[in-house]
Amino acid sequence: MNQSFELTPTRLRELRAFAAAARRLNFSRAALEVGCTPSVLSRRIATLEEAVGERLFLRTTRRMALTSRGEQLLAQWQRMEAVMTELAAGLRPPDGELAGHLCVHLPSNYGRYRVAPLLAGFLREHPKVRIEAVYDDAYVDMVAGKVDLAVRVGRLADAQLVARRVGTMRYFPCASPGYLASAPPLRDPAELKAHRCIAFSGYRSGTLWTFTRQRQRRPVRVDPVLTCNDAQAIRDAVLAGVGIGLQGDYMASGLVAEGSLVELLAEWQLPAHPVHLLWLPGADRTPALRRLIDHLAAALAQA
């Protein structure tokens, strides 16, 4: 490309001077528009005409008009201005309203019960934001998957991501009142061996349930009558009276409060799991993502 036709900052100043003069057909008024003197404006247009190789204006002492090449150049400039205006509007929505597309990766059940309502509230507050929510318990490569934000429960492994701890998820054993009505007493974790238990195959500890109380540690190997790889299925089995199962507080606390389930061994605790929000370094400079991170962090910290 000829060097003289590159859109350098100097060439853009010349084009703005030309466009102002072409619209107003008056160099003095055009100079006021672009913020320079009429003589500077005239020199810029002269330099542009030299680069183009054609006259852009026909001028007399009383009259001024565009040449055919000037009319063509003005139309091209106006098309470029329209594109730039549209681009600016897309980059910065009017009135500071949040906009954009965000991909959020969520653990299946925790995401469904605890995070999905928070996303719904965020979308009601910011209607121009679009969220793609992916519910999946598998690890996700946030770069390859084009994920903006991930919610993870448990231990973190990827030190290259920015992590913000937003809460803790607690597990506890529970059962239905119907099961407990005919079941043996349960005052100590060791007595679980006399009960029908439901185990989640996704736990690293499997059927080994380790309880603590102050300085006491009580590991118990249960013999499950049912093993599931889905927390929802375990909840349904516990509600149906099959036996005792471990449930996350996000799924079972409401059922305990309404009496559908009974929390057991309340003086003993199972290991809790930290909840983090994760994102790529620098990604939170995007206003919509930064606002979503703050929204989720505030809500999950209170849960």
Rank of each mutant, 00 (worst) to 15 (best):
L278D: 01
Y171S: 14
E263K: 05
Y171K: 08
S260V: 00
G178P: 00
E71Q: 06
R204E: 15
T10N: 08
R285S: 13
A19Q: 10
A288R: 07
T85S: 13
A82Q: 14
R62I: 02
G167V: 04
M251H: 07
R11Q: 09
R187Q: 15
T60H: 12
E125M: 09
E81Q: 14
K128C: 00
M1E: 04
D223A: 14
A240V: 01
L66M: 02
R164E: 14
T210E: 15
D158W: 03
R59I: 10
F122P: 07
P274G: 05
L56H: 02
L261H: 00
R62C: 04
T67N: 05
S42N: 13
I131G: 03
N229P: 06
F27K: 13
A301Q: 13
P224E: 07
W268V: 14
A159Y: 02
R69V: 10
D249M: 07
L226V: 13
Y139K: 10
P271T: 08
H195T: 10
R16Y: 07
L226Q: 13
R23M: 03
I198F: 10
A120S: 14
E14P: 02
G248F: 03
F18P: 03
E54H: 13
E267M: 12
K146L: 06
R164I: 11
K193L: 15
V134F: 04
A31P: 11
A163S: 08
P281M: 11
S28E: 15
E33L: 11
E71D: 11
E14C: 08
A252D: 00
L278S: 02
L270I: 13
D284I: 09
V238A: 06
T8N: 08
V262A: 00
R69P: 04
L87T: 03
V129W: 05
